[in-house]
Simulated assay, not measured.
Amino acid sequence: MSARKRMPYGLKSLVECMSRAALLEQPDDIPGFLSKYVEEMMQFRGGDELRDTKEVAFNFQEQWGKF
């Protein structure tokens, strides 16, 4: 069984967006930055747990880049 089949849906997209944001921002405190990033993404999601994880990750990435 490949690792891809064991990976939760949307995890790859989430990690890609988080990595891109960290590379663009170059924070001194990476864990703190990622914690804040995910917290803001959860607020962006607005409590709608049924929204597609990939869609939320990429839409948040687009909005985050505009700040």
Rank of each mutant, 00 (worst) to 15 (best):
S2T: 15
S2G: 14
A3I: 09
R4Q: 13
R4I: 15
K5N: 13
R6N: 12
M7F: 02
M7W: 00
P8V: 07
P8Q: 02
G10D: 01
G10A: 03
G10Y: 00
L11P: 04
L11A: 10
K12F: 04
S13C: 04
S13W: 01
L14E: 10
L14C: 06
L14H: 03
V15I: 14
V15K: 14
E16W: 00
C17Y: 02
M18A: 15
S19G: 14
S19H: 08
S19V: 07
R20L: 15
R20E: 12
R20G: 13
A21K: 03
A22R: 03
A22D: 10
L23Q: 14
L23R: 15
L24Y: 06
L24P: 00
L24F: 05
L24W: 04
L24V: 09
E25D: 12
Q26I: 07
P27V: 04
D28V: 15
D28Y: 03
D28N: 09
D29P: 06
I30L: 11
I30K: 13
P31F: 02
P31H: 10
G32S: 05
G32E: 08
L34T: 03
S35D: 09
S35K: 07
S35V: 07
Y37E: 01
Y37T: 06
V38G: 00
E39M: 01
E39S: 05
E40A: 11
M42Q: 11
M42H: 07
Q43E: 15
Q43L: 15
R45I: 08
R45N: 11
R45A: 14
G46C: 05
G46R: 02
G46E: 09
G47M: 04
G47N: 12
G47V: 03
D48C: 06
E49W: 04
E49P: 01
L50N: 07
R51E: 03
R51P: 01
R51L: 09
D52M: 01
D52G: 05
D52N: 11
T53R: 03
T53D: 06
K54V: 01
K54T: 03
E55F: 00
E55D: 12
E55I: 06
E55N: 09
V56F: 00
V56T: 13
A57Y: 00
F58T: 08
F58Y: 10
F58S: 06
F58N: 03
N59T: 11
F60E: 00
F60D: 02
F60K: 01
Q61D: 14
E62A: 13
Q63F: 08
G65N: 09
G65T: 11
K66E: 13
F67K: 15
F67G: 13
